[in-house]
Simulated scan of single mutants.
Amino acid sequence: MFIAASAACGCAPTLGVLVGARLVQGLGAAVMLPASMALIREAYPDRVERARAISVWAMGGAVASAAGPVLGGFLTLLSWRTIFFVNLPVGLVALLLFTRIARSPRREAPLDATGQIAAVVAMGGLTYGVIEAGADGFGAPRVLIALGLAVLALIVFLTPQARGRHPMVPLDLFRSRGVVVPLLGGFAFTVGFYGLVFLLSLYFQELRGLSSSATGLAFLPMTVVTAFMNLVAARAAERFGARVPIAVGLFLMAVGLMALCVVPQSTPVWLMAVLLVPVGAGGALAVPALTAVLLDDVPAERAGTASGVLNTFRQLGGALAVAVYGALITTDFLHGMRVGLTISTVLLLVMAAAALTLKRPAEVTTPMKETRP
């Protein structure tokens, strides 16, 4: 679905077709990402090996996200359509590799149609309401209707989750700190990271007059560091436990965002590119550990569900970041950008403190090896 939708995006003759194809692309990604984490949980029952595998998995996503502005900036020199066509060869290779994977165990369960539809309506209404509030204010009738619909849909969603025999999201998942902290931490990370990429992409081009390719290059140092730090994250989690890299990573992101918030507009672009490095490094340090804590805390048969909830929190964070920050910059770009970065900083600092409340890892003892005389 994702590959076919990417091809449709690249071939779209009108804006309406492009938006529709992007919707299908999002559906494909939403199904794919949680399943990839469930496959890791299935393939690596050992906690330490699973943490290493998650770091490699996270490296792929982090590098792709950070490299998007770089690669996209250069591809648009050829045509904006190429930014969608680049997905095709990668996706086809992934499909080929899937033919070598053993079939996963299955557990029959009916679809929670009420919960599924209500969740989509709730998140869609919330995102639309926030976006439109930036243009019309929160008192506008369509904004109030959208936000009211989101609240109503949330109530409809929670009812079958609490009382249904086969809920889409069992509410007892949220009783564990090992689930709640990764979910909120993933939300805060996405608000900070995607909000930053959104804001600075506009800032570099609109206020500093950079081309799309030059804007992409400004993100390059962060991309390189992100790739390296994902591999460091697994070793850090092994040595100190997951809570240390989570807390340190989110704190590093907060420091980088606050530095970008206070520098003057005349700051050289190269220095702003350097200030992006702590944001990428911190996110790369925190995300693998957050994911590992979540998958360690749930039984194997719930890995797909927990991964799906984590992905939902992250995607909702990204959508709200773009919506809220887009609304903030409509009147005064610089002021709005600084307010947005400050919001992200506060969220990250709160979650860094919350990460320190996670349980310390149990000490693992290994028998001493015999040595020959």
Rank of each mutant, 00 (worst) to 15 (best):
S6L: 08
A12Y: 11
L18A: 02
G26S: 14
G26N: 12
I40D: 02
P45K: 00
R47L: 02
V48D: 09
E49T: 01
V56Y: 08
L71G: 01
I101D: 11
V120G: 04
V121C: 10
L126D: 07
E132H: 14
A135W: 00
D136A: 15
G137L: 07
P141T: 12
L144D: 10
L144M: 11
I145P: 02
V156M: 09
T159G: 13
Q161W: 11
A162Y: 03
P167V: 01
R175D: 13
G186C: 04
Y203L: 06
Q205G: 02
T226N: 15
A227S: 03
L231K: 07
R243G: 07
V244H: 01
A247H: 03
V255E: 04
V263F: 14
T267H: 07
V269P: 01
W270E: 06
L271P: 11
M272T: 04
V277H: 08
V277A: 08
P278D: 00
G280H: 00
A281M: 10
A286W: 11
P288L: 00
T291F: 02
L295T: 12
D296K: 07
A300F: 06
A300R: 15
N311Y: 13
A319D: 02
A321W: 03
A321T: 02
A323I: 07
D332A: 04
F333Y: 15
F333I: 11
L334E: 12
A354K: 05
A355M: 07
T365C: 02
T366I: 12
